[in-house]
Design a protein around this nucleic acid. Sequence first.
DNA 1: AATATATGTAAGTAACTACTTACTTACATA
DNA 2: TATGTAAGTAAGTAGTTACTTACATATATT
Lengths: 198, 198
Amino acid sequence: MGVEQQILDAALKVFSSQGYTGATTRRIAEEANVAEVTIFRKFQSKENLLKEVLIRNRVEISELDNLFRIEVGADIETELLALGKKIAKDLGDKKKDSKNRIFMFMLFEEGRNRAEVSEILTSVFQDYITRLSEFFELQVRKGKLRTINTRSAALTFISYFVYTSLIRGVLEYSFLGNDDEEVERFIDIFTHGVLKVE
Amino acid sequence: MGVEQQILDAALKVFSSQGYTGATTRRIAEEANVAEVTIFRKFQSKENLLKEVLIRNRVEISELDNLFRIEVGADIETELLALGKKIAKDLGDKKKDSKNRIFMFMLFEEGRNRAEVSEILTSVFQDYITRLSEFFELQVRKGKLRTINTRSAALTFISYFVYTSLIRGVLEYSFLGNDDEEVERFIDIFTHGVLKVE
DNA sequence: AATATATGTAAGTAACTACTTACTTACATA
DNA sequence: TATGTAAGTAAGTAGTTACTTACATATATT
């Protein structure tokens, strides 16, 4: 792996856990197993390093495509469940080689003060919502879902997964027990609603 | 207003917008219109100041009580809508004198590294979820809601409001249009589900 | 063998930050 | 009037941080 990539990976990791201000170039260099000066030779400044990390971790449409390529199940609930589990896994994934979505949460804070960050967050969010909306739209046309506002459905869906992933990283001990069971209960509510039908 | 309170208010504001590491005692002093040294005389350290801010902004049970005191509507959907609008308003409120909920979002970041912060977040989260669960539990017993996992319902509900409030503060221009209409669409989905019933 | 390139080591700079110390001013109360 | 208290002013300390400079080393290329 090239030195640039080592640095980018390390930066992603340290920015994620310490935030932009909290992350030091020294710490990033340590994590990347390079000399600190190498960071400046390759990326000029900490600010620019953040930008590069941002650019290279922008969610690729192709990645999203992959996420939405789910097996067509017998019923829509099964399909939604499969999609939900996939998204939950994707968001919670902490493996080094996978794009670290936790990074996004650092960005929520940074985004309030840095226009470039806000811009990227917006585009990622937009991609996700659009993609999900299209999926729901399709299901409505197929007659599997009722005629709802698909963007609102997408937002409801996304909210649950991003938020639970967020709190999982923060709360002392998670009351959210097993991933999959929790997702199943959400999908149940999302599919059928909470209302008692007489 | 006493000097302590001025400092606490300023700290809340600056911590919220800059994060703990990004906030400087100098900036807080400026915002509070006091000399920097006064902060240290009153609160000893920046760390301790954060703790005090945390303690004094802990969501009071009585406040939650107030939030859940909603009018009993004709149907459950109307009640949920009223509750949702109230929560959205509470979370989005940026008035100076109201407890600044944006602060919570800073805490999500800080909570990953600071046990005291995580502890407080956990208890606030727990309070909210418990309170909402009880509300749903009651509605199930009343026969207004079907027999669902009420904690999951609460989590779904909370997720939507916290997440949308989060992105509203970050994203460039909000695609989320009007508050109330967006909430209405969420409540529709939450109540009836997305499934098409034949 | 000569040279260029990529990296490391080490020392340093300028700015900033949390926090301290010493002294001053304003005001309330005894 | 004298004294205590809460606040300000100002200067400073010690540590950290982003970033620079100068020099050394190793490896690949010509």
